[in-house]
């Protein structure tokens, strides 16, 4: 177990190093010039060169990347070109909001997706099942900004149940979380439905029924834990998809998270922030996957981590 964890953490470190290298390289070859952004349109060629030299952007790629890595080893994510602040500080201030939103999103997609999936499986072939599966298609294919705006219009503008935007209270969290979770809930309901249908056909379900157990107990105690096993691995992968969603949802709801930070940084070619957000996201994805793998043995005793 300890050996497994150590091996996974070493692998995680190598993955993050790879992500850093690839992202850094892509930003290096990017035609957009950050120095122009900083200096402004009217700056003289000399000013531009001065700034370029100051930031070390006139150095060869390997030197730049080496400097960046050296900073990373001391926990320094670099300095924003435009905001004149440490990237670490900027991200640290906004990360809690994003993590909260992500937790809300995962909660929504699991509750909505798994519940509807189980219901569809139990009523397989019925009009309800077909309706839910059409709904899940709509959920998967609807663009998140459309869903967000629609929810805002109905529940914030028309019904006035939730605030339009803002951060700080539970009611602020509801609409962004639902928006973020609805896409995944479409996936999860479909996966859960087919997984549940498979499990309900299993021999041990027949055994459970032959014992005289009631339907509720057969479904909740025997079928559900088995049906949910293939879903757990998905949750880890999901965090990656969420990172994309967060950028959109945070803009729609004015949520002060790293998604907005990243969006602004991309528009202004603020490379240190883009790098920082990318690395933090990659870390979240790697840790999320590790966490999903660590949880599995608690639900499925057949799985041993080694």
């Amino acid at each position: 177990m300890v050996a497994y964890l150590i091996r996974r953490l070493v692998a995680a470190f190598l993955i993050l190093l790879g992500v850093a290298a690839i992202t850094f390289f892509l930003l290096y070859v990017l035609p957009a010039d950050p120095v122009r952004q900083i200096a402004g349109r009217s700056a003289t060629a000399q000013t531009v060169e001065n700034i370029r030299h100051q930031l070390g952007l006139d150095q060869p790629f390997l030197v730049q990347f080496g400097r960046y890595l050296a900073g990373l080893t001391q926990g320094d994510l670099g300095h924003s070109y435009l905001q004149k602040t440490d990237v670490g500080t900027l991200i640290g201030a906004r990360l809690p909001a994003s993590l909260l939103l992500m937790a809300g999103g995962i909660f929504c997609e699991l509750v909505i997706g798994l519940t509807l999936g189980v219901i569809a499986a139990l009523r397989r072939g019925s009009a309800l099942d077909q309706g839910l599966m059409v709904g899940s298609f709509v959920a998967v294919s609807a663009p998140q900004f459309v869903v967000g705006l629609l929810l805002l219009y109905i529940f914030a503008v028309k019904l006035d149940w939730f605030p339009i935007s803002g951060y700080g209270s539970f009611s602020n969290l509801v609409l962004p979380s639902v928006t973020l979770g609805i896409l995944g809930s479409g996936w999860y309901s479909r996966m859960m439905r087919s997984s549940m249908i498979d499990v309900l056909r299993a021999d041990y379900i027949r055994t459970a029924r032959a014992k005289g157990l009631g339907r509720a107990r057969v479904v909740l105690r025997h079928a559900l834990p088995n049906a949910i096993l293939p879903i757990i691995a998905m949750i880890g992968i999901d965090i990656g998809i969420f990172m994309g969603g967060i950028v959109v949802v945070e803009s729609v709801f004015g949520w002060p998270g790293i998604g907005q930070l990243a969006w602004q940084a991309i528009q202004r070619v603020d490379i240190p922030i883009i790098m920082g957000v990318t690395l933090v996201s990659a870390t979240a994805i790697v840790l999320g996957n590790l966490l999903a793998d660590l949880i599995t043995p608690f639900i499925d005793p057949r799985i041993r981590l080694r």
């Binding site: 021999d203 041990y204 055994t207 157990l213 005793p301």
Partner: peptide, 28 residues
């Protein structure tokens, strides 16, 4: 009916199956 059968199953009439490998719930 199902409710009446539940009282019979397992209690008055029990059943064992062919596949012992898959007839027990793997996570219990």
């Amino acid at each position: 009916g199902e409710a009446g059968m539940r009282r019979i199953r397992g209690d008055r009439i029990a059943m064992i199956f062919q596949e012992p490998m898959t007839s027990l719930n793997p996570v219990m």
